[in-house]
Design a protein around this nucleic acid. Structure first.
Lengths: 130, 130
DNA sequence: TTAAATACCTTGCAATACAAAGAACTAACG
DNA sequence: CGTTAGTTCTTTGTATTGCAAGGTATTTAA
C-alpha cells in the first residue's frame, strides 16, 4: 500500500545530481529522513538492477573509490509515477484521518454509490519491468 | 521509516465508531485505500494484543456474528502519535521531492551545521508498550 | 439438503528496513 | 614498513508488513 516511498526519496535525491551513498544519506537526513547503510545499499542494487539508476566509480578526496549514481531516463519516469502515487496516498490517508477527527457526523459521499472512485490505490512498487 | 501507516488508518476508522472488519475495509475503499482480508485480520489481532482496540461479538442482520471493534483510550493516544509522525513524514518527503524538482539550485539550509535538525524521523511502529 | 452469502482465521511467501559484522582502500604516524 | 583511523562498500540474518490462497463457521434461502 505504502510501498516505494523510500525508493522514491532515494531516487529523488539521485535525480538532483550525481551522488554517492553516504551523501545520499546526508541529504535525506537534512529533511529528517533517517536511512541506514543496511537499507540503502541493497536498495541501490535493486534500483540498478531495474535500470532506474546508473553509476560510475570515482575517486574521492579521501578513502576508497565511490560509486556515483545518476538517474536514468527510466528512473526519472518511474520517479514521476511514484510521486503521483505518493500524492494520491497522502490525499487518501488525510481523508481517512479527517473522518476520524470528526466522528460525530456520519461521513457523506460514501454510501457506496455505483460511480466508482477516482482510482483505488494499489501501488505496484516495482518499475515498469523495462 | 514509513511504518504504521495502515495501522493508523485502520485505527482511525475504528476511532470513528464501532465497526467490524468488512465495514472497515469498505470505509477505507471510500478513500481509495485497498486493504485485503489477509492483511486486516492479522492487523486487528495485533491491535487487540497491544491493547489499542477492544471488540465485542454482535449479531448481524445476516450471516454469522461480527466482531465489533472500538478504540481504547490507549488506542486513541497512539493514533494521535501516529498521526503526528505521519504529518512529519509527509513534510519530510515533500521537502525531498521539492529539492529534486529543482535540481539546478544547490539546496540551502543544508550545509550540515552543528545545530541539529528539528527531530529526525525514526518511526517506532509499535505502541508505547503499555 | 444443498447452495449462497457473510464473516472470521491461518499458512506461506515476497518485500522492506535494519542491525551487525566485515572487507577493502587511503592517509597519517611511528 | 606496520599500525591505526577514517571512509566506503557489501553481506548475512532477522523482524515486520502486506498479500494470495485456502480454510472454517454461521445464517438464510431454495
Amino acid at each position: 500500500m505504502r510501498k516505494g516511498i523510500l525508493e522514491m526519496c532515494v531516487l529523488a535525491v539521485i535525480a538532483e545530481g550525481e551522488t554517492y551513498p553516504p551523501e545520499i544519506m546526508k541529504k535525506l537526513e537534512w529533511t529528517d529522513l533517517i536511512v541506514k547503510e543496511g537499507t540503502i545499499y541493497p536498495l541501490l542494487v535493486r534500483l540498478k538492477n531495474d535500470g532506474l539508476v546508473d553509476y560510475i566509480w570515482r575517486e574521492g578526496e579521501k578513502g576508497p573509490p565511490r560509486k556515483y549514481f545518476t538517474a536514468s531516463e527510466l528512473g526519472r519516469k518511474f520517479l514521476a509515477e511514484l510521486t503521483e502515487s505518493w500524492h494520491q496516498l497522502v490525499h487518501s490517508v488525510n481523508k481517512t484521518l479527517e473522518n476520524a477527527a470528526a466522528p460525530a457526523a456520519e461521513p457523506q459521499g460514501k454510501r457506496k454509490g455505483k460511480k466508482d472512485p477516482p482510482k483505488p490505490l494499489n501501488l505496484e512498487p516495482n518499475p515498469p519491468d523495462a
